[in-house]
Amino acid sequence: MKAGSNLEKILEKGEFAVTGELGPPKGNDIEVIKKKAEHLRGNVDAINVTDNQTAVVRMSSIATCALLVQMGLEPVMQMVTRDRNRIAIQSDIFGATALGIKNMLCLSGDHQIFGNQKEAANVFDIDSIQLIQCVKAMRDEGTLLGGQEKIEGQVRLFIGAAANPFADPFEFRVVRLAKKVKAGVDFIQTQCIYDMDRFKEWMRMVTDRGLHEKVHILAGITPLKSGGMARYMAKNVAGITIPDKIIARMVKAKDAREEGMKICVEQIEELRQIKGVHGIHIMAIEWEEVVPEIVKRAGLLPRPKVSKN
């Protein structure tokens, strides 16, 4: 065991993993976290906590993760290199692991132009692949980045990263995944998938390279709430493509939320058939309450129990 996290154990056992996502509040209201967390409790194996996603200021991922640990839940701490240099990153990793955080997702992060502090200076001292290398060195070599300084104590983290099969250039996308694997990543969560054909094409390239045997791939899904949301995301969210037939289904539906759930369950069934997909990552953005129903309908409940140690 690299980190001994619930997520790691489930994936190592060969179970189909389910992760969820929780966006911290735009302030310090703990009740928001509690409410969102309770929708996810028992329905997912681990909960991603975003790190100022889309560069909008929110409660820190580390603090939110620590609160989840206190609540008896398992967080995946997201960390972006946009806001921290290698000094802050490694210091925060010490703190996070000391607080009981066992999973970490390494990201470069959305550019600050999307957020609510557009005049900020960005950092990008290292990129997401170098961040994976950094965490791996801390965990496996017990050293800081650069390999000189020894660490006091042990950093035990199950290392994750993102992959976006829908960004360009398409043929580079699997190369990028291969680099992340080479850097030492343990699991991957993908951008939310609507274009199943392109995802399958990407997975075929992944399996051709044998990468699915070296890393656990969790397919990302986001339930659509309305036809408007589908249209908006297709048009405005960087790195997401939504096929017209899905948009049409959402627009025509009498009960759009129900339709969104149905699409989601169908997607999960399809994804489970794809070689190399070891789980799903449900990003129900500001709609966490839908997660239990989706997981139940997809036949993924109850979640498997693994031993605590």
Partner: peptide, 14 residues
């Protein structure tokens, strides 16, 4: 915009 050294991020499109 992110001074990346290991290839395009997930925001590169078209």
């Amino acid at each position: 915009a992110k001074r990346l050294l290991n290839g395009p991020c997930g925001g590169s499109q078209g």
